[in-house]
């Protein structure tokens, strides 16, 4: 019997008495590529963080593989937003990927050969092997994102939570990341991904969680990613909505914004 990968029940998170997440309730199956979609400030990142135990909950709970987070930590991996760290940190690509092998148990010990091999393998997976010795500040946005994903892969988890892995990423990286996600799915992993680009939801994902502080809908893309639900999630943002409605009907490829380089 397939168990649920993520079960979220009555999850409420508030900041300054203002709810960021309100009574969110859903269950997600294993082995799917799942998008979290919603307008800016709708609590997408907070949802990931609260599942990972990074923000205090005002109510409700989240269970992973039918167990509390503490019992399944080693099976869960989190990829934060790229902007959340200072990329001027003195480290090379390899150093960052190796961090995926850190555990509370081995923190005071040296890393083993196995750890290094896994890190090499993870770098290969994101096609960044030749960058292993590169200083992380010299990478492009897409490459930095791939390093983060490699670090997460090095954890060898079963469930991956990624915060906007496609944001500000060049076309080559987007393609590489997408292929990797599909591969992971084929190996039976579950992926929950905060996604900002409504145009690609249908192409990339199996399942979708639509939200705007409250849960709007969660389910298979073809059932849930409907105009009515989008209307409910995006409310008054008519311009976005008009565009999306067109795309949904056309099913066509939108022109993607190129990464802006300074």
């Amino acid at each position: 019997m397939p168990t649920s990968a993520i079960e979220v029940h009555n999850l409420t998170v508030s900041y300054n008495q203002r709810p960021v997440l309100w009574d969110v309730d859903f269950t997600l199956p294993e082995g799917k590529l799942i998008a979290i979609v919603g307008p800016n400030g709708s609590g997408k990142t907070t949802l990931l963080k609260s599942i990972m135990g990074l923000v205090p909950l005002s109510g409700g709970f989240a269970r992973l593989f039918d167990q509390p987070l503490a019992d399944v930590r080693s099976q869960v991996s989190y990829v934060p937003q790229r902007e959340s760290v200072d990329w001027d940190f003195p480290a090379r690509v390899k150093d960052v990927v190796l961090m995926g092998r850190y555990r509370p148990q081995n923190l005071l010990r040296r890393l083993t050969r196995l750890d290094r091999e896994v890190a090499d393998w993870a770098l290969e997976q994101v096609r960044m092997k030749e960058f292993a010795q590169r200083q992380i500040s010299q990478l492009s946005g897409g490459q930095q994102q791939r390093v983060f994903i490699a670090r997460s892969l090095a954890q060898q988890a079963n469930l991956y939570l990624m915060d906007e892995p496609f944001a500000g990423v060049d076309a080559a990286s987007e393609k590489a990341i997408l292929e990797l996600l599909l591969q992971l799915k084929d190996r039976g992993k579950t992926l929950l991904i905060v996604h900002h680009d409504l145009n690609t939801v249908r192409q990339y994902f199996d399942w979708v969680v639509l939200m705007n502080t409250r849960l709007v809908a969660a389910g298979p893309v073809e059932e849930v990613f409907t105009e009515a639900n989008l209307q409910a999630a995006y409310g008054g943002q008519l311009t976005v909505l008009a565009q999306v409605a067109d795309r949904v009907q056309e099913g066509g490829f939108p022109v993607r914004k190129k990464e802006v380089k300074i």
Binding site: G53, L54, R73, P80, A91, V96, M99, P104, L107, Q155
Partner: peptide, 17 residues
Amino acid sequence: GLQLTTFDASYAATLGI
């Protein structure tokens, strides 16, 4: 521990550190 919590504290927290 110092390196990881300095570079990316919230990631460290998800590892249980």
